[in-house]
Design a protein around this nucleic acid. Structure first.
Length: 262
DNA sequence: ATGGTGGCGGTGCCA
């Protein structure tokens, strides 16, 4: 069972890349972020032609998340706890069946939070607390789940090409990192770090200043696994090649494999 | 060199 996350930075601009990636890598579930589209603008026909069903929470111009899978899926949430009306489209969650029991996949687009010292940063931290609340509720079920997405957090300085340059960035603040560690301390496993304990494992390279060519990257896209999912983790990967293609997203897909038997 | 790139929407906002 292959679970992936990808911030596509506009699903309309990325339709071609997305379709060829789906056909080549065949994930069982993929969560997408930054659709920058409402439901009528989503390239549903092109995606469905690949055999994937589309569940999404859309928004005009900004944010937007989707869950794609060829399997039967039950959508279990379209927002985090304590949501308000007209909340930014940043969370979707679905549940599929496997031979080892149900698997829940949450797709998250965590607020960027810049600049620090503003309401935007406070909103980021509050959003992370709501995510932790959802994680606790899911953990209580003692089932497999994966919370994948663009967390907009570099968990440690190893995850930043230049810690000095990002010292005042919301992605690297102690509060952001503490809230991320809270998720880990609940018992969640950072899938990439389970297989690559040290060293840079970037998932994002800015469009500006030749960041890709200079490998000036960040690790901000993560897959956090419940203990029941982590017990079955067999492989992880970062599809870095997507960043070198024509008209790329600034993020690349991150995936993991779970051995669920059958 | 106080810039640079990209997406949306039709001007500045967001990342």
């Amino acid at each position: 069972m292959k679970i992936a996350t990808w911030n596509v930075n506009s699903v309309r601009k990325r339709t071609g890349n997305l379709v060829s990636w789906l056909e080549r890598t065949k994930p069982d579930v993929v969560v997408l972020q930054e659709l920058k589209a409402q439901e009528p603008q989503f390239p549903k026909l092109e995606i469905e032609a690949t055999g994937y069903k589309v569940e999404m929470v859309g928004q005009k111009a900004f944010n937007g998340v989707a869950l794609l899978t060829p399997h039967p899926v039950e959508i279990t949430a379209r927002s985090l706890p304590d949501s308000v009306d007209d909340e930014p489209a940043r969370y979707i969650e679905g549940r599929i069946s496997t031979p080892s029991g149900p698997l829940t996949v949450g797709g998250i687009y965590l607020p960027n939070g810049n600049p620090i010292g503003t309401e935007k940063f406070a909103y980021k931290i509050a959003w992370m607390e709501r995510l932790a609340r959802r994680a606790r509720d899911l953990l209580a079920k003692e089932e497999m789940f994966v919370l994948g997405g663009d967390y907009n957090v570099c968990p440690t300085d190893v995850d930043v090409f230049s810690p000095k340059l990002f010292a005042n960035d919301a992605l690297c603040q102690p509060e952001s990192r503490r809230a991320f560690r809270t998720l880990l301390n609940l018992g969640l496993t950072d899938a990439i770090r389970a297989f690559h304990a040290d060293g840079p494992q970037y998932t994002y390279w800015d469009y500006q200043a030749g960041a890709w060519q200079k490998d000036n990257g960040l690790r901000i896209d993560h897959l956090l696994l419940s203990p029941q999912a982590a017990d079955r983790l067999t492989a992880v990967g970062i599809d870095k090649g997507e960043r070198g293609k024509g008209e790329p997203s600034d993020h690349v897909p991150v995936w993991c494999e779970l051995d669920v038997g059958g």
